[in-house]
């Protein structure tokens, strides 16, 4: 399936609201293994995206993803800015001439995060949610359990990328905050497919 403009708008609007609602939880998760500002940073980014899209509503999916990307890149302030920003920027480029299959779209976003973060799965990052979601979409097996399991699996991973990697073994037992915000992203997506 392909995500059309209205579905994609609903998806991202729900994601933006969900980030704002979960700001404190994201900060808390980040306090345990990072610098404690993932919620605050993401909230700043999604509010900028909301404002930008209100001022100039997107007329196609490429513009929607690009405006989202630029808002996150410019306003987040932490590592999640360029990571989410690159994902949405690459997705915007991929749908510029014509819309593509959702599974391919999410895989392109995932590859963007891997490139920008020079990282891969099993490093306790947002990729540990993005990649299983991309796989689930391509096998037509994506549901909320798949997303929750991916998130919860980050608990047992020793962080080898990002701020949490400074903690090494001590990062075990904590959820990755970027994986949590990614879970919110894809839970919102589920409501549109």
């Amino acid at each position: 399936m392909k995500l059309e403009l209205e579905q994609a708008q609903n998806w991202l609007n729900e994601f933006f609201e969900s980030i704002i609602e979960n700001k404190d939880l994201l900060n808390e998760l980040d306090t345990a293994i990072g610098d404690g500002d993932h919620g605050t940073n993401m909230e700043r980014g999604v509010k900028a995206a909301q404002e930008a899209l209100q001022n100039k509503p997107a007329t196609d999916v490429a513009k929607l993803y690009m405006t989202t990307a630029m808002s996150l890149v410019n306003k987040v302030g932490g590592a999640s800015g360029p990571l989410y920003g690159t994902a949405f920027m690459d997705m915007a480029k991929a749908v510029k001439s014509e819309n593509i299959e959702l599974a391919d779209l999410i895989q392109i976003g995932t590859d963007g995060i891997k490139r920008r973060g020079e990282s891969d799965v099993k490093m306790k990052t947002m990729i540990d949610v993005w990649q299983p979601v991309a796989d689930g979409l391509s096998d037509d097996k994506l549901n909320s359990e798949v997303i929750e399991k991916a998130l919860n699996d980050t608990k047992d991973i020793v962080a080898t990328k990002g701020r949490a990697s400074y903690l090494g073994e001590q990062s075990v037992g904590h959820l990755d905050p970027g994986a949590k915000s990614s879970e919110l992203l894809f839970k919102a997506l589920l409501n549109q497919i």
């Binding site: 590592a79 360029p82 920008r116």
Partner: peptide
């Protein structure tokens, strides 16, 4: 640190 690097690369 990390995000300085990533923003720079972008």
């Amino acid at each position: 640190l990390g995000s300085s690097k990533m923003n720079l690369e972008m």
